[in-house]
């Protein structure tokens, strides 16, 4: 990883851009920088990572952008030279999902594209270990990838007004879980009742559960 650049973002914020691709290795580098840089620089107030970029908020009372760039450059260069195997992986989480047409409004239509129907969709969606590229859009909304080619679908042309809390959905190479009821344009496959707090860099596996177990879990969830 050699090509990266700074970009001014605001009077108190600077952006770091790696290569503009949605790719695991590039995002792993973003996560590595997001973890390492705050430890080294006390004037760094907040780091916001995304797919191939990080936004760094710094304390303007302590430094100006020129100083920030000068101090960051050698450190970023050095970190990006480290072998990627040295970059630690995030936590591995398992999320139990009920893939049921009543809980995932788009499941039937997508299943119609496969000879094995819903079973094929479940197999394809639960097969990969997903990587959390970034959190955004809404609190706790994790952009995960990569969805296998055969299951990639475009977003709805017109977003739904109301996607229920816990919905598990896909859009292009991304998959996500809606942590709260909100509008949304992704294709809905099913729903979960319990999920952990996800962080960028974490790994996620989806596991298929039946309706009875889902109902059981929802009862527990409301009792919490």
């Amino acid at each position: 990883m050699s090509t990266w650049q700074f970009q001014s973002a605001a009077a108190d914020a600077l952006m770091i851009h790696l290569e503009p691709r949605i790719e695991l290795t590039i995002n792993a580098r973003v996560q590595q920088l997001a973890r390492s840089l705050p430890v080294k620089f006390p004037w760094l107030l907040e780091v916001v990572p995304s797919y191939h970029s990080l936004l760094l908020y710094y304390d303007v009372l302590q430094c100006d952008e020129k100083q920030v760039r000068e101090q960051l450059k050698p450190v970023v260069d050095a970190l990006l030279q480290e072998p990627l195997s040295m970059v630690s992986q995030g936590k591995l989480h398992t999320i139990e999902v009920c893939y049921d047409p009543e809980l995932g409004a788009d499941l039937h239509r997508i299943a119609a594209d496969f000879s094995g129907g819903i079973d094929d969709v479940i197999r394809l969606h639960t097969e990969p270990t997903y990587h959390v590229y970034a959190l955004g859009f809404a609190p706790g909304f994790a952009y995960m990838g990569d969805v296998v080619e055969a299951l990639r679908r475009e977003r709805h042309a017109t977003p739904r007004q109301r996607v229920p809390r816990g919905s598990v959905a896909i859009a292009g190479q991304q998959t996500a879980l809606y942590p709260q009821t909100s509008p949304g344009g992704w294709q809905l496959l099913g729903r979960a009742c319990r999920w952990p707090q996800l962080h960028a860099g974490d790994q996620v596996r989806f596991v298929s559960i039946d309706r009875a177990r889902y109902t059981e879990q929802c009862k527990d969830a409301t009792n919490d």
Binding site: A9, A10, V48, S53, L55, G136
Partner: peptide
């Protein structure tokens, strides 16, 4: 349009 990136206040 680009790959989504963090937005600062006032952007």
């Amino acid at each position: 349009q680009m790959i989504s990136e963090p937005l600062p206040l006032g952007a």
